[in-house]
């Protein structure tokens, strides 16, 4: 694992200049972004959700 690139987010102890800018707007998933995600998921989601959910039955485990 030596020499790997590690992603470094800014920490809040790094001083005020490094704080991520407060971005309340970013909190709202943009309509376009979520639409794109849903369109993609629509294409792969089990077509009969009710039957799929009913059929997903597990034995207990640890």
């Amino acid at each position: 694992m030596a020499g790997q690139e590690q992603k470094r987010p800014k920490g809040r102890d790094d001083g005020p200049d490094d704080l991520p800018a407060p971005a309340p707007a970013a909190a709202q998933v943009s309509a376009t972004e979520i639409d794109d995600i849903l369109d993609e998921i629509d294409g792969v989601l089990e077509s009969n959700a009710e039957e799929f959910v009913r059929g997903f039955v597990q034995k207990g485990g640890q």
Binding site: V57, Q58, G60, G61
Partner: peptide, 9 residues
């Protein structure tokens, strides 16, 4: 979990 009472770790 299967959401029906079973959980596995």
């Amino acid at each position: 979990t299967d959401g029906k009472g079973a959980s596995y770790g």
